[in-house]
Write a protein that binds this DNA or RNA. Structure first.
Lengths: 144, 144
DNA sequence: GCCGAGCGCGTTATGTTATATCATTGATCA
DNA sequence: TGATCAATGATATAACATAACGCGCTCGGC
């Protein structure tokens, strides 16, 4: 048995590997979406040196629901709820990249999956809403 | 026959350039999503030789609503309705890449945009539903 | 006709995102 | 002790996308 290593809280299953912890920490610190290569730059000093290392960790973290991928931006972000196994949507400011995670209730999920035609039995949904956040909206309405 | 009749200025519905026509034709023939480089391979015989040519045409066609991009696959597909300026969703078979375009009614659109929190005023929605199509579902249930 | 502006497009080069593959390490167990 | 497997390290390359420059055509003014 190994000693508990890190991350108090809720994880019922396996623990994170050191690399996974580093990368999750990096994303949580940032609080905003980062590309895999941006993550790589930030964790180089921690000894992570190659893209596959980052992608492996990200894929594992995504399986656990602790990191999500923003498809419309090819970027990754820490789950705002620590961990979630459900479905969620994102609202993304197209100007400043701010991201807000939107948890989807059961009903909402069902409704979204129900949009799929009979020919395709739906499994996962990717929903990203782009727009302008308040400050960027103001900045644009009255430029310098 | 191409009629090279282009003109800068007010006309709201300009016609397609030769390259745009070729690439739209290619996508329509395919009837399924293609990567930009797959398109490039297919139109090389028509004289298109470089990625930027393809991306330029794709971007124009997307602005016109005649081509959509599948974010979750980095692929492009001809609009199933010829042209649409509205919102739409996609159902995608994760096994065979079959794509079905789902037109979203006004109500559905409004509901989706309404999911955005107050902080972000929503503009566009990206909704992609992945799952298994009938034949792939069967194939998986009873493998050869 | 001549000229310059605008535009579509060709071309080169490079940037960015992601993965296939093999090597190394370290734990487990007959 | 040595076989074996899982995880990670490292190399290389594949796949996706765009920046930047330049050419040639058509259009409009003169």
């Amino acid at each position: 048995m190994t000693s508990p290593h890190h991350h108090a809280g809720g994880s019922p299953a396996r623990k994170l590997s050191p690399n996974q912890s580093k990368i999750l920490g990096c994303l949580r610190e940032a609080g905003e979406p980062m590309s895999a290569y941006a993550i790589l730059d930030r964790v180089r000093k921690s000894g992570i040196a190659h893209p596959p290392t980052v992608y492996r960790a990200l894929n594992d973290l995504m399986k656990r629901g602790m990191v999500h991928r923003l498809e419309s931006r090819s970027a990754f972000i820490a789950c705002g709820h620590g961990e979630c196994d459900g479905r969620f949507a994102f609202a993304i400011c197209r100007a400043c990249d701010k991201v807000i995670e939107i948890p989807l209730g059961e009903k909402e999920q069902a409704r979204l999956l129900g949009l799929a035609p009979a020919e395709i039995s739906p499994e996962t949904v990717t929903l990203e809403i782009a727009g302008l956040c308040e400050s960027c909206g103001l900045a644009q309405a009255s430029p310098a």
